[in-house]
Computed example of a mutant assay.
Amino acid sequence: MKKIIIFGGIALALIAVLIWFGKKNSASPVKYETEKAFKATIVKKTVATGKVIPLEEVEIKPQIAGIIDKIVVEEGALVKVGDLLATVRVVPNEQSLTSAKGRINSIQIQLSNAKTQYNRNKNLFDKGVISRTAFEASELTYNQFKNDLRNAQNDYQIIKKGSAGSSGANTNIRATASGMVVEIPVKKGYQVVETNGFNAGTTIATIADMTKMIFEGKVDESEVGKLIKDSDLEVSLGAIENKKFPAKLTFIAPKGTEEAGAVQFKIKADVSLDDDYFIRAGYSANAEIILEKKDSVLSIKEALLRFDKKSEEPYVEVKTGEDKFEKKIVKLGTSDGVNVEVLEGVTKDDDIKIWNKASKDKEDTNNN
């Protein structure tokens, strides 16, 4: 009896499976929705990352070595040419100071001897014993030593105090350009080195014109060839949301640099500022650059495309009848990542298959 029940259950299960397969095979084939080509403006863009910096920056450096004695301005202050920024206290070099003092003593000895000869020759000249030429020669030597002594004394004062007079011209650090003080990398007590032919010197302050800002960024080598000087850009700042600043491309580097295995080219663009926003130097920024633009061209969505496995040519399937589609090879133009220009292969009247999207009728059938 148990065997009859078991075999009967298996038979019923087989009948149910056969009925299910029969219904599935009799179901209508999948119906795909279609979409037509359309006219669109295709804009291909690239994004360059970088920062916003002042067009003009001037580094202020001392004319003499020493120690910062006082800083009279703060970062963010507006200054004009000639304004005092800081003062430097000179710490003289002992060897140079000793050498300058020794030179003074040597010239004083020579001057004393020249003065004695000058006075002697003057008395002789007044008595008519020597010629005017001999007297003038001694007078010239005497005057030269007096001048040498003044120069030696001035050199000594410069080494000792940084200035030959009382004005302190070398120890007073003044602005050489008008603008905003954007950086003061030193503090009171810092030791600084003067700028000369062998040393760049210590930067005491950096002054920039904050009314003229530029975007400085980098683009990949695959896109730099498509850039055109004087092109329009839109610059977005990380510190200012929902605001784009117009800019004009002014510079494209003729030489690239390799970074992380890719060659990058520096670009610069003049940024048009908005008076409602204060742009600080060094803000991180992204610049959208239009590489190519096509107005009102025949386009389709890129999601409609497929690529041949052998030839890798792009194609779409165009509806030719009820649930029937024909493969059409297409020639493509500019793409913006969503829509792509179609040069050949389809017309605006063709119904193009939407891949992997069944019709609503099919969905209703499945629900029933």
Rank of each mutant, 00 (worst) to 15 (best):
F7C: 04
G9Y: 07
L18I: 13
N25E: 14
N25G: 10
A27N: 15
S28C: 03
P29R: 01
V43Q: 11
K44T: 03
K45G: 11
T46G: 11
T49A: 07
T49P: 06
G50W: 00
V52N: 15
I53V: 15
E56Y: 05
I60K: 00
K61S: 10
I64F: 05
I67A: 07
I68G: 04
V72G: 07
T87D: 09
E94G: 02
E94A: 14
T98F: 09
A100W: 04
G102V: 10
N105I: 13
L111W: 06
L111S: 06
A114C: 07
K115L: 08
N121Y: 14
L124C: 06
L124A: 07
D126A: 08
K127P: 05
K127I: 09
G128M: 02
I130P: 02
S138T: 04
Y142N: 03
Y142P: 00
F145H: 11
L149R: 06
Q153G: 01
I158L: 11
K160Q: 11
K161Q: 11
S166F: 12
S167E: 15
S167C: 13
A169M: 12
S178A: 09
G179F: 04
E183R: 12
Y190R: 03
V192Y: 00
E194L: 12
G197P: 09
N199K: 08
D209A: 12
M210T: 13
G217H: 03
V219R: 12
V219E: 08
V224I: 01
G225H: 01
S231L: 02
L233E: 15
V235T: 02
V235C: 00
V235I: 15
V235F: 00
G238S: 13
A239K: 09
A239Y: 10
I240M: 10
I240P: 07
K243G: 06
A253T: 07
P254V: 02
P254F: 01
G256R: 04
V263C: 05
F265D: 13
F265R: 10
R280C: 05
G282F: 01
Y283I: 00
A287D: 04
I289W: 08
I290P: 09
I290E: 05
S299N: 06
I300Q: 05
K301W: 12
K310G: 08
K310V: 15
K310P: 01
E312A: 13
P314W: 00
V316D: 03
V316F: 08
E322S: 11
D323H: 01
F325S: 08
E326I: 11
K327T: 15
V330A: 04
G333F: 07
S335V: 05
D336G: 00
N339I: 08
E341D: 06
G345E: 07
